Amino acid sequence: MAAFQICAQVWLTTSLLADSLAVAGQALLASAFAKKDHYKVVVTTARVLQLAVVLGVGLTAFLATGMWFGADVFTSDAAVIRTIHKGVPFVAGTQTINTLAFVFDSEWRGMASIRIG
């Protein structure tokens, strides 16, 4: 249970980091969409998605190495560390998908918040 809590909290922390990119993209996208600047909508969408992939891959690499070699920061219990190592592929491996999911959701909400009349 201790290893699960550590993995879950690390995953949640990085999810909130991804959400910060998503919220910023949502605000930029809603602003451009409200001004009916369709070129800026397309450029903003593309750039935020590119940044999401870069952030996701960066978080994957950072968490894979950080949790593998730095699990002892959270605990000194060898059994918990071994269990954390079993969770590293999931926690690190889902970061790119997670980041893209947050960004896609926020971009959709950014466009949906403006009614075209």
Rank of each mutant, 00 (worst) to 15 (best):
M1S: 11
A3G: 02
W11S: 13
L12P: 00
T13K: 14
T14P: 00
T14Y: 15
L16A: 09
L16G: 12
D19F: 14
D19Y: 12
D19T: 10
A22V: 07
A22Q: 03
A24Q: 12
G25W: 01
A27G: 01
A27K: 13
L29F: 04
L29Y: 02
L29D: 03
L29P: 00
S31H: 10
S31Y: 06
F33G: 00
A34R: 15
K35R: 15
H38W: 12
H38D: 07
Y39L: 14
V41W: 02
V41A: 01
V41R: 00
V41P: 00
V42D: 08
V43E: 10
V43C: 05
T44V: 10
T45V: 02
A46N: 10
R47E: 12
L49I: 12
L49S: 09
Q50R: 11
Q50S: 13
V54K: 04
L55G: 00
V57I: 15
V57F: 13
G58C: 08
L59I: 07
T60D: 09
T60F: 14
F62E: 05
F62G: 07
L63E: 10
A64Y: 13
T65E: 06
T65K: 08
G66E: 04
W68E: 05
W68S: 13
W68C: 01
F69G: 04
A71M: 06
D72Q: 11
V73I: 14
F74G: 08
T75E: 03
T75W: 01
S76K: 14
S76T: 15
D77I: 03
V80S: 02
I81F: 04
T83E: 15
H85D: 14
H85E: 11
K86V: 15
G87H: 02
V88Y: 05
P89S: 06
P89R: 09
F90Q: 05
G93R: 04
T94V: 13
T94H: 03
Q95G: 02
T96P: 05
I97P: 01
T99K: 03
T99E: 03
T99M: 06
A101F: 09
A101N: 07
F104S: 06
D105C: 07
D105N: 10
S106I: 00
S106C: 11
E107Y: 01
R109I: 08
S113G: 06
I114H: 03
G117V: 10
